[in-house]
Design a binder for these strands. Structure first.
Lengths: 234, 234
DNA sequence: ACAGGCGAAACTTTATACAATCCGCGCCTG
DNA sequence: CAGGCGCGGATTGTATAAAGTTTCGCCTGT
């Protein structure tokens, strides 16, 4: 048999050059290395990744569809700058979806999954101890993504990926203090509830976790100085 | 053939051409004119819309991101063929999101919106009376989209657009009888509840409406003949 | 007659060249 | 001296051509 490996259509890493660009930019945004409003020139990115503008363009279009990049006609692509209204919508959606996700995660509980979750918690703790803020932020988002993968619902997973990426930008823009991005203790509590197959506790802890994150944000009133801030911020 | 490509004096938006392609294909899928598995050749579509493959490609990529088109590497784009498992996920997501959407729609109630909704109901009834199945299917989906627009939550709206498009494929694939796509009576009941600002009734009616739609589907067990059917169906 | 492999055609993918558009800067004018 | 106008540079949008891959048909060998 011609043992030609059949590449999965959705293999994120590996040989897909478009995916490499997309994930490189996404990682930079998730780690707060790219700030909202930053211009993402096609030639510039193409130079960095050694790719043609064609590939860069498709990657940027995908990111635009995910809501973390804005493409302005004849102007170019920019890292998105979510408004406070966007922020409220994102967190409301997360409060709706994520408790349901953890509920399904309980259905999929297994030693392998518990192991993956606990390994992830260890990584998070290590990054925080090391004071690596960038890794910390990225891993906090990855925790939520991991739970969504565990739930086995590909649609919820896709939605949540978008919400997490946008949340990263929101936290960067509107967080009050330099408090840790996502309390690791909360994550540990959620894992514990999942392991004990305690649905209600898991849902409740996820919900309060999200509420605490949003409570740390300072979301200006839309009618207030939002317009002014937006214009001046550009 | 080169002579034909003549840009109009004032092209409204070059990006609009991509949108026209995307919306044209989407409408064809929503109206059950394009069947799952149909190959969407780039040359073919480009010929139809008088556009270059570059534009067709971006449109198809957007549709792929919405989940109604599958792009297989080096093979091309095909209308998606949701599995029964996908169908269950889609309807579970809708059961989660749409009751919340109608809840928010109640907050936005106004004579203008009630008017739009009732005008839409009239359109639906007319199409059904006329026996126009294609318009009927499309309008049924449009009703849900309209309520989402009324809710004012752009994120929910974006998610729901995806879910509706996929639902259309699912209904086409798995509906048992030729029952009307979406009971117009249900829609009328939902509008009535919204108008009366009765949150609980609106949520409950939306939920039971979705349940009835899913109940009319015949979703084979995944472990059953799914694999076989998929292979033979191609 | 049938299985297996070679080859050509068609398609997607990628790169490059061209055209259109926008922003900034300098000049001219009032 | 201030403000408007027009030109130049740069960047994006689009089309076309080259390159790679898959698929299907045909041919040959057993």
């Amino acid at each position: 048999m011609a043992a030609k490996s059949r590449p999965k259509s959705d293999a994120p890493d590996a040989s897909d050059r478009v995916s490499r660009i997309r994930e490189g930019v996404t990682a930079a945004i998730l780690e707060h290395r790219l700030l909202p409003g930053t211009k993402l020139g096609e030639d510039e990115i193409g130079e960095i990744y050694g790719a043609s503008r064609t590939l860069v363009r498709t990657a940027l279009q995908q990111l635009a569809h995910e809501g973390i990049v804005n493409i302005e006609k004849n102007r170019g692509a920019f890292v998105a700058r979510p408004t406070p209204a966007d922020a409220r919508e994102v967190f409301e959606a997360r409060r709706l979806i994520e408790p349901t996700i953890v509920d399904h995660a309980v259905d999929a509980v297994s030693p392998a999954w518990i192991g993956r979750l606990q390994r992830h918690l260890a990584e998070e703790r290590e990054a925080e101890l090391r004071g690596d803020a960038r890794a910390s932020v990225r891993l906090s988002g990855d925790f939520h993504r991991l739970v969504a993968e565990m739930s086995g619902h590909s649609i919820y997973l896709g939605f949540l990926k978008e919400l997490i990426a946008r949340s990263s930008l929101i936290i960067l823009l509107y967080r009050r203090h330099d408090t840790p991005a996502c309390g690791t203790d909360h994550h540990a509590g959620i894992v514990a509830a999942i392991r004990k197959c305690d649905r209600e506790a898991a849902r409740a802890q996820m919900l309060s976790h999200l509420n605490e994150i949003e409570a740390e944000l300072f979301l200006k009133d839309p009618a207030d100085e939002l317009r002014l801030a937006d214009v001046l911020g550009a």
